[in-house]
Amino acid sequence: MSYKVTEENNISIVHLDGEIDMDVTEKAKEVIMPLIEAKKEVHLNLKDVQYMDSSGISVLIESHQKATELGTKVVLKDISKSVLKVIMMAKLEQILNLG
């Protein structure tokens, strides 16, 4: 997994790339959580994520819950077909913010 963080209109945009599994979830959290803790609105661009497993979905849930707790939000953007399928399999399409 690789990533790039950009800033636009006070929104942090995290572009994730590659496969997100248990082996990289800590790295993903290290990137995403500090932005949420800084109470930024965070957009996760998932266009280039070709694979995500339950560990990756857990990062999305934890990020969403932390953001809600701190009064901000995480929006999932440009979700790849394979990631959307897993989000729907987890029945989270109504819970996570899909932008």
Partner: peptide, 17 residues
């Protein structure tokens, strides 16, 4: 459980689906 939104237990949920 389907309505229990929390990390964990999802892997087995996927396998069973």
């Amino acid at each position: 459980k389907i309505d229990d939104v929390k990390p964990g237990g999802l892997g087995t949920f996927f396998i069973k689906q």
